[in-house]
């Protein structure tokens, strides 16, 4: 009988600790499930193998408990999904605030961003969209979090990748912005910075990688090759701009762009994110119906 803090038995406290662990996981998952977006494409659910479909099976058999737990989970999930919009409609973020005209990034003045019209137009559209378009405090918090913690996917095909490495190196140090956590798995990355030419062979791989990323995701087309084909525009096998395959958020010209230009592009992406409507916009939850995934025959 070991008595510990507060005179409670150690075993009881050990059980409390274990339950706390469970509570942490459950709590965080509930929050994430409530506020996060959901979207489905066929490729998103496939295993990740560097952008190429897997050859053959990776695993042998399934667990029967999967069905039971899937049903239980679905029950609780539907309940919480219905609770959430009720909670929000009842007043959490309904303060009407006028949208700020200047989307500020630390230490860079609004005038120094050369294309103010794009963001200003976005802001105007948001305002003109109707009475329910608001940028509440919660949206601002989410946007602050997302814009300051953008993790790139390691995706360098050609020369621009070397400048990106210089960006991460000691002199330019993108870690100051919090961007240095470059993840290799698309599930864990926030944006894909296409550095280098995309050709016809690489295009399906890029599309697959993009679809396998978790929402919300962004794309920066870095270098002339990804913007329009660049010096290789007349080639028989180069994609004339990566926006033919995936939607692009920021275009960064240059051959290769200097690291300072990279920073400018990243700050533009941050501005764009700060203006986005998170709740009701970015965190849309798509339904799975209509997308029937056909089970692959084992090759």
């Amino acid at each position: 009988m070991d008595f510990s803090i507060f005179g409670v038995q150690s075993t009881t406290l050990a059980i409390t600790a274990a339950l706390t662990g469970v509570l942490l996981v459950v709590g965080a998952l509930v929050i994430a499930w409530l506020i996060g977006p959901r979207s489905y494409t066929e490729k998103k659910g496939e295993p990740f193998e560097c952008g190429i479909p897997t050859r053959g099976d990776s695993m042998a058999q399934y667990h029967v408990g999967y069905y039971l737990f899937a049903i239980l989970f679905l029950m609780f999930d539907v309940e919480t999904v219905f609770l959430f919009p009720w909670a929000f409609r009842s007043g959490l973020c309904l303060e009407e605030r006028s949208v700020e005209m200047e989307v500020k990034i630390k230490s860079m003045k609004h005038e120094d961003f050369k294309d103010n019209e794009y963001i200003d137009n976005l802001v105007e559209q948001l305002r003109a969209g109707g009475t329910n378009i608001i940028v509440g405090k919660l949206d601002q918090l989410m946007n602050w979090g997302v814009s300051n913690s953008l993790w790139p996917l390691c995706f360098g095909t050609s020369c621009c990748a070397i400048e990106f490495m210089c960006l991460g190196a000691a002199r330019y140090d993108m870690a100051r912005y919090g961007f240095e956590v470059a993840r290799n798995s698309p599930r864990q990355a926030d944006y894909i910075m296409c550095q280098g030419t995309i050709n016809y062979r690489m295009a399906p791989a890029l599309k697959r990688l993009y679809e396998q990323m978790a929402e919300p995701k962004y794309v920066i087309a870095c270098g002339s090759c990804t913007v329009s084909g660049g010096p290789f525009k007349n080639s028989y096998c180069v994609v004339k701009g990566v926006d033919e395959i995936i939607p692009v958020d920021v275009y960064l010209p240059g051959c290769p762009p200097r690291p300072e230009a990279f920073f400018y592009a990243l700050m533009q992406l941050q501005r764009k994110i700060k203006v986005q409507k998170y709740f009701g916009g970015v965190n849309r939850k798509e339904k799975l119906e209509g997308l029937k995934y056909v089970k692959e025959e084992t090759k």
């Binding site: 280098g196 030419t197 290789f232 080639s235 096998c237």
Partner: peptide, 9 residues
Amino acid sequence: YIHRGIEKM
């Protein structure tokens, strides 16, 4: 995967 047809160009 980065073949750009330089020789043909």
